[in-house]
Write a protein that binds this DNA or RNA. Structure first.
Lengths: 228, 228
DNA sequence: TCAAAAGTGTTCTCAATACACCCATGA
DNA sequence: TCATGGGTGTATTGAGAACACTTTTGA
């Protein structure tokens, strides 16, 4: 007889809160459940952790199974453990979030599997406590965006300064001054101007930039103040 | 037959990383395990979550059982879920941390139960992955201290500005300018000067202050920049 | 030719930093 | 009387915020 014999055991799940950015809006990745429980309802990407993997490995596996996405760097948000959060079973969920670049490959992958993007200003009713998780994740990224160059992860590899500004405006939910924004971003010295223009946004066209990843990593480490 | 039947179940634990501040040093609360497993080893305060409680309720219960401490506001740090983190059993642990005021009542409570404080510059070998948890928690509080008035939670109800400065110096691990420190703290307008002096630190004595809790809460919400 | 978005500079305010001396008191 | 820590003020620098006009070009 050993102390562990008397202890309770739990189902442990992970739920992935995946944000993207497309057409000036922040999007959330969700899918329609095809099986019970909650068949037909809208849910975050999530499932159960297996005995032989860590929570973080489970998140990677589950995201891949549901959406085909790979190489997504997720961070832990929080655990959700209300006794009645899942009405049928006692299950603790560890929510993980990530910000990803939505490119055409990803669009195709995701559509094939029946997942879809919802504008975060207009998120539908989700199963269980998933709406609460999403709200917490949004709060988290708003907070983090003030101190880390988080926004860059959401943009395509080549992007314009007005696009970057639109992204920050979506995160902060307020308008920013284009002159001050440009000055601040350029002063950080983490983006490199290219000799191409993007003409989809205007007739004049805006210069494309790319990240200087090395400097970007340094900036992340130093905890530089990104408040805009 | 139902999908839950095939899923794995886990032991779920909480480990509490409790920091205090005494004699100019940040301290960590640990205890000597009196029972197996790891009898005699040094460990964080921690135990198993029960089926009928949330992780956070478990943390409160466990902290009270081990130390007698009540009304401690713990925040979630992270989950620790390596497959082999506990060599005997598959157990996921949710680490929670808190900063508390060490007063005489607390000293008595804790000593009675065989828990003790270690200087964080000199933490002993702890069981399992507890050292990793402590390192992660220290990193977290250093980061958070830059944006929230976190340090105040560690001081006695009445404290002097030099004491507060010593605390921030311990968190940041560097010396601060006393004139600039005083100016910054007073400009935040969250401490109230009392008409008493503390003479334990010097012959001249230093004026005692107390918190203005209302303003302190506002400051926490606004995410004011506390970088010093 | 004009509508629509991109791009550019200056001023002002305020907070952070650097820095040196006097004060009060118990031993 | 003197050693010890407490307490004070100023000048400089740099970043953030406010703010309006010119440029480019496809329709």
């Amino acid at each position: 007889m050993d102390i562990y014999d008397k202890k309770d055991k739990f189902f442990v799940a992970v739920d992935c809160i995946i944000f993207g950015f497309d057409k000036g809006k922040i999007k959330l990745l969700v899918f329609n459940r095809k099986i019970d429980p909650f068949k037909g309802a809208v849910s975050l990407v999530g499932s159960f952790v297996r005995i032989g993997e860590t929570v973080s490995e489970a998140a990677v596996r589950i995201l891949k199974e549901f959406t085909g996405l790979e190489n997504v760097y997720m961070k832990e948000l929080s655990t959700y453990s209300s006794v009645d959060r899942d009405p049928g079973y006692r299950c603790i969920s560890v929510a993980q979030y990530a910000l990803i670049r939505i490119d055409n490959d990803i669009k195709t992958l995701i559509e094939e599997r029946g997942a879809k993007w919802f504008d975060i200003e207009n998120i539908p009713e989700l199963v269980l406590d998933h709406n609460e998780m999403v709200m917490d994740a949004l709060e988290r990224i708003q907070k983090i965006a003030r101190y880390e160059p988080i926004g860059f992860e959401l943009l395509p590899k080549k992007f314009t300064i007005p696009q970057l500004q639109t992204l920050y405006e979506a995160i902060y939910r307020r308008k920013l001054d284009p002159r001050n924004f440009r000055k601040k971003i350029l002063s950080l010295d983490v983006i490199i101007k290219l000799h191409e223009k993007d003409k989809t946004g205007s007739k004049k066209g805006a210069f494309l930039y790319k990240f200087d990843y090395k400097k970007y990593i340094d900036l992340q480490k130093s905890g530089y103040n990104f408040e805009i």
